[in-house]
Each structure stands twice: as C-alpha cells, then as structure tokens.
C-alpha cells in the first residue's frame, strides 16, 4: 500500500511529468485569474457602494487585502514545500518552494505599499511601527532572505537545505501577523473577514473582495507553475529529457 503511494508520488513529481502537466494547466489558471480580476475590479470599482466612514478611499481594500492574504498563503505553501523537500527529498517540492518565493515577496510588497497609500488619507500617516505593519515587513525580509540564500549558494542541494530551513523557522511569523491586531493594541484595525463571526462588511462590498482574492490565488497557481517549469528545465539542464525537449523547440 505505502509503496504504491510512494511510487505514485514519484511518478507525479518526476520533473518530466511535471513539466508536461503544468504546461497544460497554466492557460486555464491564467484565463481564470484574468476573468475573475476583470469581474472583481468591475464590481469593486464601479458597482460597490462607497463606505459610510472612509468614502471612496476604502476601495484600496480590493487590492490590499487579497495581496496581504496571498503573502501569508504563499509563505505557508513555500514552507510546507520546503519541509516536504527536506524530509522526503522530493526535488520537485524544493522547486515549488523556490518558485513561490518571488511571488510571495511581490504580494508582501504590494500589501505594504497599498496599505501605506491607504494609511495616509485615513490614519494620517504612511507608516507606523505597530505590530501588524512591523510583522508584515518582517515577512518581506524573510522572503528576501530565502531568495538571497537560493541565489548565493551554488550547490543546489545545500541552497535548498539552507533556504528551506529559513522558510520553516520563519513560519512562526505567520500567526503573529494574523493575530497581531488582537494580541496587541495596534493602529491597524481588527479582522473583517477572517474571523469566526459573520464578516463585518456589507455583502455588496464582500463579493468583489472574495472575487479578487480568488483571482490572486489563480494568478499565483499559474505563475508558480510557469516559474517551476523554468526552474525544472534549469536544474535538469544536463539530463536527457531536457536535451530532447529543447532539440524539438
């Protein structure tokens, strides 16, 4: 039984198999991401009503919140893949982790910048050192650290081990970010959607938010596969299947 599962995992995680399957999946994810973005932006920018307190400025929520969610989601995905790579020595897991890092960093950066553009008109400051903002900034640094280790260490196995370890240790930051607004007095307000209670946002405003969140997830799915395919090609550049594939191009 176990050996069967193991064999199944090995087939599906073989770089050659992955390269082909991922190539077929990418267009679907990309098309879904594009369609949901257009739909979500239309509802968010033109249909959803203004907020009773923040007026039109709250529309930044439709990029800020999905980007912040993605920065956390991708970090967890990266750390899980890195640990799978470390423990079971599945090479594809390391590839997924290293392909995820720049995407996660981009989303963390977007969350910080759009948050600051939202903070200025509403709070009165572009930046404050409260627990939520600081822990999100540390998340960006963790992504940078992972990417730096990946590119600095020449031996791929050592690079995967070192950066994977950093990714796993950094996971402690994820619950800190999420609960920072409850554990400490922060300028950042509490959770609107991701709480056990009913979301404290009007349905007409919630729907575009969820659409954008789904759009960003599909965007990540498409882009991580694109990046992982490139990475697989590069890592297997001396293997026969890559040589045969490139000869055909």
């Amino acid at each position: 039984m176990f050996s069967k599962i193991w064999k199944w995992i090995q087939t599906f995680s073989s770089p050659k198999y992955f390269y082909g399957t991922a190539g077929k999946l990418i267009p679907w994810f990309a098309a879904g991401a594009l369609a949901l973005t257009v739909w979500g932006l239309y509802l968010g920018l033109f249909v959803a009503p203004p907020d009773y307190q923040q007026g039109e400025s709250y529309r930044i929520i439709y990029v800020h919140v999905p980007a912040a969610w993605m920065s956390l989601f991708i970090y967890v995905a990266m750390a899980v893949s890195a640990s799978v790579g470390l423990i079971w020595q599945i090479r594809l897991a390391d590839v997924i982790a290293s392909a995820s890092a720049p995407i996660g960093a981009a989303f963390a950066f977007i969350a910080l910048v759009t948050g600051s553009l939202w903070g200025k008109p509403m709070w009165g400051a572009y930046w404050v050192w409260d627990a939520r903002l600081t822990s999100e900034l540390i998340l960006l640094f963790l992504y940078f650290g992972y990417m730096a280790l990946q590119s600095a260490i020449e031996d791929q196995r050592t690079a995967d081990k070192a950066s994977g370890l950093l990714a796993i240790v950094g996971v402690v930051n994820v619950p800190i970010i999420h609960y920072s607004v409850e554990w400490w007095n922060t300028l950042h307000q509490g959770a609107t959607v991701t709480k056990f209670d009913k979301p404290s946002i009007d349905t007409s405003m919630l729907i575009p938010l969820l659409l954008m969140a789904l759009a960003f997830k599909l965007f990540y799915a498409a882009l991580v596969l694109v990046r992982a395919r490139n990475e697989v090609l590069y890592r297997d550049r001396n293997r026969r299947w890559v040589r045969e594939l490139i000869q055909k191009l």
């Binding site: 203004p50 007026g55 039109e56 400025s57 529309r59 930044i60 990029v63 800020h64 980007a67 981009a106 950066f109 977007i110 910048v113 759009t114 553009l117 939202w118 200025k120 008109p121 965007f219």
Partner: peptide, 19 residues
C-alpha cells in the same frame, strides 16, 4: 474617487504594475 483618486489609482497601478 471623492478626493482620494491619487491614493486609490496609485494603489491599483502599483499592484498590477508589479504583478
């Protein structure tokens, strides 16, 4: 955008620019 056009459009511009 009710006087917040600068902040809102820059946010969207930066987001989709980066992506």
């Amino acid at each position: 955008m009710g006087g917040y056009a600068f902040f809102v459009w820059w946010s969207y511009g930066i987001t989709f620019g980066v992506l």
